Amino acid sequence: MVRITHIGGPTALIEVGGWRLLTDPTFDPAGGSYRFGWGTGSEKLTEPAIAADQLGEIDAVLLSHDHHEDNLDAAGRALLPACGTVLTTQAGARRLGGDGVRARGLAPWTSTTLERDGRTPIEVTATPCRHGPPLSHPIVGDVVGFALRWEGQQEGVLWISGDTVLYDGVREVARRLDVGTAVLHLGGVRFPISGPLRYTLNGEEAVELSRLVQPRTIVPIHYEGWKHFREGRADAETAFAAAPELAERVRWLELGVPADL
């Protein structure tokens, strides 16, 4: 059984087989303003549902990317030295390594294994992301998602999409992986300076991606808590309602409340 607690934005606690894994740590208080570069920025609108000092032990962090503060803010960064292994992009591992942070960098479709005495090992495979429109990589940088596989898994891998739009790299997940649970970063991120260009999945793309991947369970995150998230839960619910074969698979998690999947 897998237990997931959505803490806010892209941050979730995943518990399985004694492991406690944290995605994209964001624990700053509400009200802060952030600049992401190239004229983009945002404001944090809500508090994390669980404070950083209430987390308990974290065995590993699954960090899609380190260079945007809506995925790793100051309070989240301060947690990393005490969090065991940090799995992230290769560039991110180079930036984060040292100062007590044990970072491992993964290129898309490369794998590493989390191991600890008395626990079932977890194989973690990085999956492709493109955090924006075509040709945006020099601006937005490297991002990865994560596919988690362990012995005894019943319904396919647990896949965390990371911040991405729908493109061929993400479609490759459908061809290469049998996905049991898909944790999808939504939000339809846009910025005034780049007009209609998007930097994460919107509801329609999430539906299209889910039709390709065919997960047994769909868990939306990264749709609330920040000003630059342009599509909230209601928008995604409308999109999934138009796909009744998928709507019954969507599991909305109450912030701060553990959910068994």
Rank of each mutant, 00 (worst) to 15 (best):
E115V: 07
G97R: 03
S33Q: 15
R251K: 14
E224T: 14
T11A: 06
P258S: 11
E57I: 02
L114E: 01
A49D: 12
V143G: 13
A93F: 01
T46P: 00
I218T: 04
V173Y: 02
P192V: 12
S136Q: 12
P133F: 11
P192K: 09
Q153D: 12
P258M: 07
E151G: 14
E205R: 09
E245T: 11
W109M: 08
G9W: 06
R102Y: 10
L166N: 08
V170T: 10
A51D: 15
Q153P: 11
L87N: 03
L87I: 04
G17S: 06
T88A: 03
W159H: 09
A91I: 03
P48K: 08
I160V: 10
P10D: 12
H228K: 10
P138H: 11
T110L: 00
E248P: 04
A126W: 01
E237D: 14
F27I: 10
E15D: 10
G180V: 02
E69C: 13
L166F: 11
G100T: 06
G100F: 00
S111H: 05
I4Q: 01
L246K: 09
A74Y: 06
G84M: 02
V213Q: 04
L177D: 05
A126Y: 01
D117F: 00
A82I: 00
S111F: 03
E248N: 13
V179W: 03
D28Y: 10
L45H: 14
D178Y: 00
D53Q: 13
L212F: 07
A60K: 00
E57T: 13
L80Y: 03
E43N: 15
P108M: 02
T164R: 02
H6I: 00
A243H: 03
E204T: 13
A174H: 04
G98H: 04
W159A: 08
E47N: 14
L13N: 03
V183Q: 04
G9L: 10
W252M: 09
I4E: 06
S210R: 03
V250A: 07
L255Y: 10
V250Y: 05
G41L: 04
G105N: 06
D142I: 05
H185D: 08
R233H: 06
T26L: 08
Y199C: 12
E254A: 14
Q54R: 15
H6P: 09
W38T: 14
R102G: 07
A52T: 12
E123M: 07
Q154F: 08
H228D: 14
G18E: 09
P128W: 03
P108K: 05
G141V: 11
L158S: 06
